[in-house]
Amino acid sequence: MEDWFAWVLIVGLGLGAFLTRAVFVMPGSHLRLPPTAERVLRYAPAAAIMAIIVPELAFTHGALSVSIENPRLVAGLVAFGIAAATRSILLTIAGGMLVLALVRFLAG
């Protein structure tokens, strides 16, 4: 990767992260979000994060693999359960990685 490309990416992401956090705080006025806009803003991050996670779990070597022999899928589903039950990032990562290792070990 070209050096300039990486820095354009980083600075652009930095601007985006700052502007989304500053958009109402910096003007300092009592702007109100319309309810529909607020819904879109609430649903979009959850939808986007899910759309990142699902292919990471379901694809192995570029092919869809929905099976108990797909270690990432099994580990990811267990991690969903742990996250829902504990709300702990640490336990979710640790439990998921443990299951990943276990399924790989059992699959030989």
């Binding site: 985006g16 989304t20 500053a22 958009v23 109402f24 300092g28 979000l33 803003l41 979009a44």
Partner: peptide
């Protein structure tokens, strides 16, 4: 595509910003 993806994930900050402004 990378900018747009990051922006979508960051949209929750717009809500925070609106709540924190006052």
């Amino acid at each position: 595509v990378m900018y747009a993806t990051a922006l979508v994930v960051n949209l929750r900050y717009v809500i925070y910003s609106a709540v924190l402004a006052p």
